[in-house]
Amino acid sequence: MAALKDIKRKVDAVQKTKQITRAMNMVAASKFKNAQLRMEHFRPYATKFMEVLNSLALRVEADSHPLLAVREPNRIRVICMTADRGLCGGFNTNLHKMTERFIKEKTAEGKEVQLIPVGKKGRDYFKKKVSIINDRADVFGKFDMTLAVDISDDVIPSFIKGDYDELYIIYNEFINVSTQRPVAVRLFPLPSIGKDTDVDPEARLDYIYEPSDEALLERLLPMYVHVLLFRALLETSAGENGARMAAMDNATRNCEELISSLTLKYNKARQAAITAELMDIVGGTEALAKG
């Protein structure tokens, strides 16, 4: 009889777990919807911005700006953008692995690497392993452009000052709800802009530039960094919740499977117990009749 009770208890426990995972799935779904909406709202801004930046870059010899300065990359900084929380499948783990590999490679080449973790999971994971600076944790609950501006304020002045020579960002590129791909992108020096666009320079309107076109570009470049960072933040936030949705959906399904197999086991055990009891009774009466 003890086995029966044990199985029953297990079924109840799994049932509770299932409730939790299903609730988390629904929460993640609503957050995901939000994040996706924000990505959509951001798109016109980013597109318009790139249009102007590219047309401006076509006119100006942009290579002189300090954010485009190419130096011997001896000191490297890496922004690793993870989620604040776990329970989202391989979302964070894949990033950790990629970042670790990246750091190992660069260190093997004799370069000095510093990590800028954004998001709590990455911060906690790398805290004791590598040298970290300017870490930011618990940021994804509620964030806006200010966060991208804050991160830029950490990295832009120190790059211009020459504290380090290259900046990379490692984050999960958002492909769709269930797919995110970790990527490492070089942020500084900024890749030259406008060179590979097919805008016909003649077709563009000739603007009056205020202040001069160079000064304007100088103002737009930091904004470009904000755009890039904000996009990465949005993709991380959408990807995190998408990954959590998928993970929790799987977990709920696994719970269901577990429950049905446990229930089957329970019923079998119950039937076995009843049969055993019946046999006892039958055996008992037979013995009595004989006696």
């Binding site: 102007v52 603007y207 205020e210 304007l216 103002r219």
Partner: peptide, 14 residues
Amino acid sequence: EFGVLRGHAPLLSS
């Protein structure tokens, strides 16, 4: 500060 009415010359300003 500058004002713009319809028909303004093309301008790009920060």
